[in-house]
Simulated scan of single mutants.
Amino acid sequence: MRAIGPALAGLYDETPTVVLGPVSRGSLVGSLTATAVGVGFVEMRKDARSSYDSDRWVRRTTGPDYRDRHEVFGFRQGLIAPGDHVLMVDDWADTGMTARTARELVEDCGAHWIGAACIVDGLTDPRLRHDLPLRALLDVRQL
């Protein structure tokens, strides 16, 4: 487990100021990555509603995921600020919709999107590797 955070952070030359991870496994590997780099971590929650607290939230709805669902992701406004350099970290990429939504949320905050780092790349659309960009430790065909 100790090696996962540094390995994910090492997929990009650019150093993040914030690591973003979607619930639930993205929160685990994201916090390991943030700790390895020595920066803050922001959890991107599913079904994010401002009714959780009085703070304002930044929210976006995904395109269809691997189960053809549309999820609402978000986090409290102000956790990612203009000028931040954000790396999203997750365990697996399948359709790329979570990473695409994360990028939109980061851009909504006026921050710089570095890319998405995953343990396993199972992207169904290979163009997303370049568009997002997305880098991974393993390709699904290696499993």
Results as ranks from 00 to 15, higher is better:
Gly38Lys: 14
Glu14Lys: 13
Thr98Asp: 01
Ser51Arg: 13
Gly74Trp: 06
Asp53Pro: 04
Glu104His: 04
Leu134His: 00
Arg49Gly: 14
Gly110Trp: 03
Ile80Val: 15
Ile80Gly: 13
Trp92Lys: 08
Leu20Asn: 01
Ala34Ile: 09
Glu107Gly: 04
Leu87Phe: 13
Leu32Cys: 12
Leu123Val: 00
Thr33Ala: 15
Arg129Gln: 09
Leu105Ser: 05
Ser24Trp: 03
Ser27Gln: 15
Asp68Val: 04
Arg127Met: 09
Val42Ala: 10
Leu132Phe: 02
Cys118Thr: 15
Gly26Ala: 04
Thr98Arg: 00
Ala81Gly: 08
Leu79His: 09
Pro16Val: 12
Thr17Arg: 01
Met97Leu: 04
His112Arg: 14
Leu32Phe: 14
Tyr66Leu: 02
Ile119Lys: 01
Gly38Glu: 11
Arg127Thr: 14
Ser31Gly: 11
Pro82Tyr: 05
Met88Leu: 13
Asp108Ile: 11
Val86Lys: 06
Gly96Asn: 02
Leu79Glu: 15
Thr95Lys: 03
Pro133Ala: 06
Cys109Tyr: 05
Pro22Ser: 13
Thr62His: 06
Leu20Cys: 02
Arg49Asp: 15
Thr124Arg: 10
Met88Phe: 12
Leu128Ala: 06
Trp92Gln: 05
Arg69Thr: 04
Cys109Asp: 08
Gly26Leu: 03
Ala48Gly: 11
Arg103Cys: 00
Thr101Ala: 08
Ala48Lys: 09
Glu107Asn: 06
Ile114Ala: 08
Pro22Val: 10
Val39Lys: 03
Arg59Phe: 03
Val120Arg: 00
Pro82Asn: 04
Gly96Arg: 01
Val86Trp: 08
Pro16Trp: 07
Arg69Ile: 03
Gln77Met: 08
Gly96Gln: 01
Pro82Met: 05
Thr98Gly: 01
Gly30Trp: 12
Arg129Tyr: 05
Asp94Tyr: 01
Leu32Asp: 15
Gly40Ser: 14
Gln77Thr: 07
Glu71Gly: 00
Thr95Ser: 10
Phe41Val: 08
Asp13Glu: 14
Gly96Cys: 00
Gly83Tyr: 10
Thr95Ile: 04
Arg69Cys: 06
Arg69Pro: 02
Pro133Lys: 05
Asp91Tyr: 06
Cys118Ala: 14
Gly30Thr: 11
Gly74Ser: 09
Val89Arg: 12
Asp55Lys: 13
Leu79Met: 13
Arg76Pro: 08
Gly96Lys: 00
Ala36Pro: 15
Ser24Glu: 07
Glu71Met: 05
Arg127Asn: 09
Leu105Ala: 07
Val106Asn: 05
Met88Arg: 03
Asp84Ser: 13
Gly110Met: 03
Val42Ile: 14
Ser24Val: 10
Ser50Phe: 10
Gly122Pro: 02
Tyr52Gln: 12
Gly30Leu: 10
Glu104Arg: 10
Arg69Met: 12
Gly122Val: 02
Thr62Lys: 02
Arg127Cys: 08
Ile114Asn: 07
Thr62Tyr: 06
Asp121Met: 03
Leu87Trp: 12
Thr61Gln: 12
Val23Phe: 11
Leu79Cys: 06
